[in-house]
Simulated scan of single mutants.
Amino acid sequence: MGRIEGKVAIVTGAASGIGAGVASRFLAEGASVLAVDRAPAPAPGTDGARFDSLQVDLAQPDAAARIANRCIERFGAIDILANNAGICDYRLLEDTDDATWDRAIAINLTAMFKLCRATAAVMKARGWGRIINTASIMAERPYPSLTAYTASKHAVAGLTKSVAIELGAHGITANYILPGAVLTGITAPLIAADPTLRETYDTMGVVNRMAMPEDIANAFLFLASDEASFITGHGLAVDGGALLKM
């Protein structure tokens, strides 16, 4: 049996990068997965009966309700919420217009809040749940040209801690992951435009490589499993030691 055999998971940002890695890992470990993204999520290489996908813009007001309802209709439950979808726009403070700020907060924070709210009652009724939110090492250490992104990721940490306090008595844990540099749809185009960035990313930490989506997916799996039942309100750095150097 897999480590989350029989569980039902929602994974956002599942069309590529970390989200795709998480969805694939969860499926391999026995869970049923609703993969959510604006783009089509890739079909699984495992049992299709345990996989469904939904294309939706998380900034839409009814997105959280649609996602929760779809998961219940398809699989009859919600056990794990992997809140991973996010955007990153590199702009200096003076160049960050209202639209850029509002979009970052809507996707990186408000959508997470609404999905936590939409799934909490279902998890409480089952007496078991795992909420795992993707933050960033920028939630611990700010970096120039990432004003909106950094602010949103700091807020993800606060949101997750509050959720952990409220839901802990119901058998639900809430944690957040702090990835460092990961090869995803966000970083790959930057590296393609400037190949010297790869060396920068590879040397951000102390293990001399940037992360692959699978590295982050492994952390999601741990926090989703029974092995992490006594861990909540925690920010798990999966950064190759980058925070040690910042």
Rank of each mutant, 00 (worst) to 15 (best):
G205L: 02
D194W: 00
D194P: 04
E214K: 04
R198F: 06
D215R: 00
N208C: 11
M212Q: 15
V182E: 11
Y201G: 02
M204L: 10
P195L: 00
I177P: 15
L197F: 04
I191P: 03
G185Q: 06
I191C: 04
D194L: 00
N208I: 10
R209V: 11
E199T: 10
N208W: 12
V207E: 13
A211Y: 04
A188N: 11
E199K: 00
A193E: 13
D194K: 00
M212F: 08
T196L: 07
A211W: 05
A188K: 08
P179G: 14
I186N: 07
D202I: 00
A181S: 14
G185W: 10
A181P: 15
I186C: 08
R198L: 02
G185D: 12
G185P: 13
V207K: 02
T184A: 12
D194C: 03
V182P: 15
D194G: 01
G180D: 14
T203Y: 06
L197W: 01
I216N: 09
G205M: 03
R198Y: 03
L197E: 10
I191W: 04
E199S: 09
T196I: 07
A211Q: 09
T203G: 02
M204I: 11
R209E: 08
P195Q: 09
N208H: 13
D215E: 09
Y201S: 05
A192G: 05
M210V: 03
P189G: 03
L190R: 10
G180E: 14
E199Y: 03
R209I: 08
V182M: 14
A211G: 13
L190Y: 12
A181L: 05
A193F: 06
P189K: 00
I177C: 12
P179K: 09
M212Y: 08
L183Q: 14
G185C: 07
V207C: 01
M204E: 14
G205Y: 01
T200Y: 07
T203R: 06
R198M: 08
A181R: 05
P179Y: 13
